[in-house]
Design a protein around this nucleic acid. Structure first.
Lengths: 224, 224
DNA sequence: TGAGATGTTTAAGCATATATTAAGTAACTT
DNA sequence: AAGTTACTTAATATATGCTTAAACATCTCA
């Protein structure tokens, strides 16, 4: 699966590229509109991720319009800064298939990419488990054994990430880039604090611990 | 199940496409009549959704007539702007199977698509329940225990949506795209207000509450 | 052993999500 | 045309969640 990213903010473009590559997509990046337009119309891609506001003769919207005019119906996800509702309709009007407002969490983008590329449903598990701990990504329910556990949004996102990477330690930078918005300037200490919150809820009341610190490498979920 | 949409308003076409894809249909879109006509008569589809007023040599009505002349009996849903009754008969006369006046709520379209594709009956329940609450999608009656509850149109649509997704929280964006017209620009706060109205009617007078807030994730209906 | 590095904990201020109320519009009835 | 009902928004209040700073604890390696 080939994906083209057209985005002038290098930081964002590279973060997206990295994340998508980790999911085994082949990713090309263009940092300006003219170049991006040329690539989008000449190379065969399975998906385009295009920023609305980019320098060059073509902005994101124009690229989408030209693509559609040229009968290129590759799915497009449009990115834009926190905008008005009018923006949203305009974006979808142009022929884009989906629309994402910055800042967004990487996981959110990945979910939409999967949706547009119609990855088989069974690839994405809805219930993640480790030992007697279970997390349901549809109902957002978290349980340990029979007891319900209530998590906040961030706690849930953190636990989900750790469960998806079960057994292998994730360092704080990794966690920040996956659980927080791509451009969030969050201190590593914030992760530490959230780990504490999580432990309070999923480990402290129980005998066997699941969330482990791997000093120097990060944190991991593991059931013995 | 393959569905073809012939509709020149990109915004509508894309909204429909997305909604239908979420229901696991394979969807193709054509933005003009000539192209659409070619696709409808050469490719095998299980259903066509065709706008009446489209640019090109063929308008929607003509496409349906030509299809029928060519003995292609794929079900057709015709879309049209707020029209006269005369329109309606003309439309069904032409050989269309159903007829929908814009603007319409997505759920309405989905219901008709399901009906025409004869999805197994048990998929579309006519009475939805949660605890002692019941909602009849045919008679529009809502009851809790023995007491009748009167809801307005939007309140009803909201409750129906939540009941269909019972147990799983729906966030405001989801609710807006399913309960309001496809082109409605409605603020998230509107959903909050409607939740309040609903609660006043279905929860406040009763001891056990059914409509729950799941902070950070949305709202859900759930009976313990 | 002890100094620097890494991880833990607590509490407080700030930010955001949700709830509530009221008032303005639009649509429908009589 | 006036009155009613439904719909949506704006303004405000309240609750909860998020993030940081700073103090404390533990580990590692010279």
């Amino acid at each position: 699966m080939r994906i083209l990213i057209i985005e002038d903010e290098h930081k964002i473009a590279n973060a997206l590229k990295k994340a998508l590559q980790q999911e085994n997509y082949a990713v090309d990046v263009s940092y300006d509109g003219d170049d991006g337009y040329a690539m989008a119309t000449t190379e065969p891609y399975d998906l385009n991720i295009i920023d609305w506001m980019i320098p060059g003769e073509y902005d994101g919207l124009a690229i989408v319009k030209e693509m559609r005019k040229a009968k290129i119906h590759t799915p497009v996800i449009l990115l834009t800064a926190k905008g008005t509702i009018e923006n949203r309709t305009k974006g979808l009007d142009s022929g884009a298939d989906d629309y994402l407002v910055k800042p967004f969490a990487l996981e959110e983008l990945l979910a939409r990419v999967r949706a547009l590329l119609r990855r088989p449903v069974d690839v994405q598990q809805t219930v993640l488990t480790a030992g007697d701990l279970s997390l349901n990504t549809v109902t957002f329910e978290v349980k340990r054994g029979n007891s319900d556990i209530k998590l906040t949004g961030k706690e849930f996102a953190l636990l989900e990430y750790l469960l998806r990477n079960q057994g292998k330690p994730s360092n704080k930078d990794m966690i920040i880039s996956h659980v927080w918005d791509y451009n969030a300037d969050v201190l590593p200490n914030t992760v530490e604090v959230y780990v504490k919150y999580l432990r309070q809820k999923i480990d402290d009341p129980f005998k066997t611990k699941l969330l482990h610190t791997v000093r120097g490498f990060g944190y991991k979920i593991e059931a013995e």
